[in-house]
Design a protein around this nucleic acid. Sequence first.
DNA 1: GTTAAATGAATGAATATTCATTCATAATTT
DNA 2: AAATTATGAATGAATATTCATTCATTTAAC
Lengths: 161, 161
Amino acid sequence: MADGTIYLYFKNKDDILVQFFSYKAKQVFDLFREEVFRAEHAVEKLRNLVRRHLDEFQRDRNMAIVYQAETHQNCRSVEPQIREMAKMYLDIVSEIVEQGQADGSMRKDLYLSLVKRFILGAVDETINHWLHSGGKYDLVSMADPLIDLFIRGIGNTPQMQ
Amino acid sequence: MADGTIYLYFKNKDDILVQFFSYKAKQVFDLFREEVFRAEHAVEKLRNLVRRHLDEFQRDRNMAIVYQAETHQNCRSVEPQIREMAKMYLDIVSEIVEQGQADGSMRKDLYLSLVKRFILGAVDETINHWLHSGGKYDLVSMADPLIDLFIRGIGNTPQMQ
DNA sequence: GTTAAATGAATGAATATTCATTCATAATTT
DNA sequence: AAATTATGAATGAATATTCATTCATTTAAC
């Protein structure tokens, strides 16, 4: 493709970014919701969500690189529009956690807006590490250990029999 | 200060970044270790570490902005040197978790290298959200709720009496 | 008065953007 | 159905912009 061709389809460089993300987001969030509704219980919903999240980022490494860079930048003009997408993700997590609280599988005393970021942050850092390691290992295999950490934490709390 | 003045003290732009980070890292990691050794139990060490982490980033917002941007960028020449610092942090976390496992306060069946990133990721995302919100609220107050999530997770596992 | 430090306009390499032109295809005319 | 005309997507050379870096000059220090 020639240099100028892209400007027939996009206003400027930022517009490419924003349009790409809103296109990709539509695609990916449909998959996410599908994956979430496939499961019945909250924990399984969360597991499916995280697994699909990792899977999509592993599938599209360039998207992962751009996403990581753009969402961790301040003072970009396109920032609000891209962060809007992260919000959609956080809303799915909220929904799942609220369901988990309702059915008793998750604690009631949770600071919900922190829980969302706690989960997204851990998944994001998992992806970030995978990117910086050159994508050598299988990212999706991190889903189950992550869910285990999210649900049970690292503390050694003896369970009831 | 005039444009050119900085080149009397630094080789180039990347050198500014690397020198700044290694200077800051020395400062901050001394504080971190001090904070960690101040506590006796592993959980309290982790709490002190996270609290100090949030405190330092809240204190130096510009550092936080640059750190977030640089650690989430691929293909930067300075990347390895900055990631080296994240590694130091991860090593402190490792140490704490291993102590926690030894004294029985943390689970033995942990995927340690994932636990490190799980904790760093959640703290990082907490900082990132604070940055994007314009730093309006108190970041340090997130430390205790975060530690609670790290230790107990979000699952509702009834405890022994 | 000599040395050292600071200045900021100038540079140029990298990259974002424009726009006159080309050309294959579609539509219209004979 | 052959010839003519219109269309608009693609091109890429030309231009605009950004930004890290330099260096001749000025200012300050001793």
